[in-house]
């Protein structure tokens, strides 16, 4: 009994700081974000004092709704508006516009889902194909793999600025190259054209992160026992058969990891948009992340922005759970 208590204490000492930090910097802000989503907080009022929180909790303990609400409002520095932000979100065309397919694709939700779909497909399957091909490279292996991984080492700001310069209409390298080849008619405003901007942003994300996702697959490929390949060779299996019968089933754990990571990458797409298009032209490249930032920073509507964040969190969690469940089932079947 004494030993168990001592072990518990030791565990607490070791895990306590990590748990405290997680509570303070992840769980706490998430709960506060949800609470702010129920208010009209503009971002300009300062945070309240601990005594305000005490008053709110005291009100709750006494079952005094008025005192609890007053304490909460003082602590959050904002007025409680109930579910008004969520009701507004349901009819917000910048968030989601269901009038037509084009209108939906140009809303924040539609654009984010479009980019996410491209990102998930590319990083889940494109990266797998690339990894299998790179695995077959026998000479200058480090150099070749390094070339693919290199863009991932660059900071997001650097790679985004690089694309900003590449895609500029008048001075950009792409249009200059096209003009040099006598293809001036093909010149485009790569980052601010409604047709091309989504693809350019996707190209930026793919160029930056493809190496990382490929590396995860490569690591998994290295772990496949050599005797499986030898047995396949004895059976006269070609590269496609090897891929289908050996590599693909054994890569399934990484497929799950990559697809979830790619999903998070896609839904959270933000920095690239800030640097390159700032959501333009108009609001056509608003991602959910950029819309939250725009609401909070430019419109001073942190309460509403918090409500959007919470909805995005729920959406992301729901998709991730469905995805993980489906892939795990597939993994078991294989």
């Amino acid at each position: 009994m004494k030993r168990r208590r001592r072990e518990s204490l030791v565990s607490l000492v070791f895990c306590g700081p990590a748990i405290a930090l997680y509570l303070a910097f992840v769980i706490g802000p998430a709960l506060l974000g949800f609470a702010y989503g129920l208010t009209d907080w503009s971002g300009w009022s300062g945070g309240g004092q601990a005594s305000d929180l005490g008053a709110a909790l005291g009100g709750l303990a006494r079952l005094d709704g008025g005192a609890a609400r007053a304490g909460c409002e003082a602590f959050l520095g904002a007025k409680f508006v109930g579910l008004a932000n969520y009701a507004e979100l349901a009819h917000d065309p910048v968030f989601a516009n269901f009038q037509s397919v084009t209108a939906f694709r140009r809303s924040a939700l539609g654009f984010t889902l479009f980019e996410t779909l491209l990102i998930v497909l590319t990083f889940t399957f494109g990266a797998m194909v690339l990894a299998v091909l790179l695995d077959r490279v026998k000479h200058r292996v480090g150099l070749v793999r390094g070339l693919f991984f290199y863009p991932f080492v660059l900071s997001l700001l650097v790679s985004s600025l690089l694309f900003l310069y590449l895609g500029n209409y008048r001075e950009g390298a792409i249009n200059k190259a096209l003009a040099w080849m006598g293809l001036s008619a093909w010149q485009q405003d790569w980052l601010m054209s409604p047709t091309w901007a989504p693809w350019t942003i996707f190209a930026l994300v793919a160029w930056t992160s493809m190496g990382f996702f490929t590396t995860l697959y490569l690591a998994n490929l290295q772990a496949i026992p050599e005797d499986l390949y030898e047995a396949a060779a004895l059976d006269g299996a070609g590269p496609l058969a090897v891929f289908r019968a050996i590599q693909f089933p054994l890569l399934m754990p990484t497929v799950l990891t990559n697809s979830v990571l790619a999903l998070i990458n896609g839904i959270n797409l933000f920095g690239q948009v800030v640097v390159t298009t700032q959501g333009g032209p108009g609001t056509q490249t608003f991602t959910l992340g950029y819309y939250i930032y725009h609401l909070g920073r430019l419109n001073n509507r942190q309460g509403y922005a918090s409500a959007v964040s919470f909805v995005v969190f729920v959406l992301l969690a729901a998709i991730a759970i469905v995805q993980a469940t489906a892939l795990r089932r597939r993994q078991v079947e294989l």
């Binding site: 895609g167 500029n168 209409y169 008048r170 950009g172 010149q187 405003d189 980052l191 601010m192 054209s193 333009g280 032209p281």
Partner: peptide, 9 residues
Amino acid sequence: YAGKGVLSD
């Protein structure tokens, strides 16, 4: 008068 590519400027 804005001209093509003005969204890049």
